[in-house]
């Protein structure tokens, strides 16, 4: 592989890893806190992209603000999902997953009806031009995803480890009964977890909007990848999810560049199978969920 191609692929890997990480941490958090397996997570991502479509491409708001707008919007969707779907099915992971599968259909149909199917939304790229690193051209639009992800992931870490409310989320994930006894409201924690899950998936979608074709089905492939990331990382582990996200980002990007996209996904799955055979609890998973 030529140096330029190599650098290009490395850069793209980091970008992919950043998106995977941003999308997956919310999924891991929701699952860790109360075994909420969100099938509609890909649609949260998709709707985040549509938020940017509406506010930036249609209404002309600055791109940065449009991305920020995705945060409360999709967080609210996350809260609703928790309240209406996960809370009534609490205790039954499969039921929650299947019910959110139903939500997936609902959201896809709604997006298609509201904004139309058939043609892909092309969102004007706010940041034209490219950075030149070791001879490789990397679009600025892509590059900015990396610091955005770093900030988002850093913020999440800070919240979970330095803020009492965030620590409550971890306590709830480790022992819900004991957490309840300390005065931690389980309902508030599950709402918070799904709100964060929505916000993060939504922002990822928003950032990808100028890069990826915006369609009601853009979240489908990402869902499987996100779940693979969460499983490889260790079901409820946030750090594991981030690590797995970047590893998978590298695998996908390099294999796609050298071979093709289909092979990339297959190699990713093989990697997951390998990890599960060697360490069934995942990279950073613990015996206790």
């Amino acid at each position: 592989m030529e140096l330029t191609t190599f650098v290009q692929t490395m850069a793209n890997s980091v970008v992919s890893g950043s998106i995977y990480a941003t999308v997956s941490v919310g999924l891991a958090l929701a699952f860790g806190v109360m075994k909420m397996a969100n099938h509609a997570h890909g649609e949260f991502f998709m709707l985040g992209a549509y938020v940017v479509y509406v506010f930036y491409a249609l209404a002309g708001m600055p791109f940065f603000l449009a991305v920020l707008a995705a945060i409360p919007t999709i967080a609210a969707l996350g809260l609703l999902t928790e309240r209406l779907i996960f809370r009534p099915t609490r205790g039954n992971v499969l039921a929650g997953f299947m019910a959110t599968a139903g939500l997936t259909w609902i959201l896809q149909v709604l997006a298609g009806r509201i904004w139309g199917l058939g043609f892909m939304k092309m969102i004007p790229t706010p940041y034209m031009g490219a950075a030149n690193i070791a001879g490789a051209q990397i679009g600025l639009q892509r590059v900015l995803i990396v610091p955005a992800a770093v900030i988002l992931l850093g913020f999440l870490w800070f919240f979970l480890h330095r803020v009492r409310l965030g620590k409550g989320l971890r306590a709830c994930a480790q022992d819900p009964d004991a957490a309840a006894l300390q005065g931690i409201s389980i309902n508030k924690m599950t709402s918070l977890a799904m709100g964060i899950a929505g916000a993060y998936a939504g922002v990822a979608g928003a950032l990808m909007a100028p890069i990826h074709a915006v369609t009601p089905y853009m979240g489908r492939d990402l869902l499987i990848t996100a779940f693979i990331v969460v499983i490889v990382g260790g079901m409820a582990s946030i750090e594991g999810a981030v690590l797995a996200a970047f590893i998978l980002g590298f695998i996908h990007t390099f294999v796609t560049t050298i071979f093709d996209a289909t092979s990339a996904i297959m190699v990713g799955v093989a990697f997951m199978a390998f990890i599960l055979i060697v360490k069934p609890t995942g990279l950073m998973g613990r015996a206790k969920a």
């Binding site: 779907i85 099915t89 039921a95 299947m98 019910a99 599968a101 139903g102 939500l103 997936t104 259909w105 609902i106 896809q108 149909v109 709604l110 298609g112 009806r113 199917l117």
Partner: peptide, 15 residues
């Protein structure tokens, strides 16, 4: 095109 939405509601309702 509304059919999957209808089934989504049924599914959630059943569960």
């Amino acid at each position: 095109e509304w059919r999957p939405l209808f089934f989504g509601i049924i599914l959630i309702g059943f569960l």
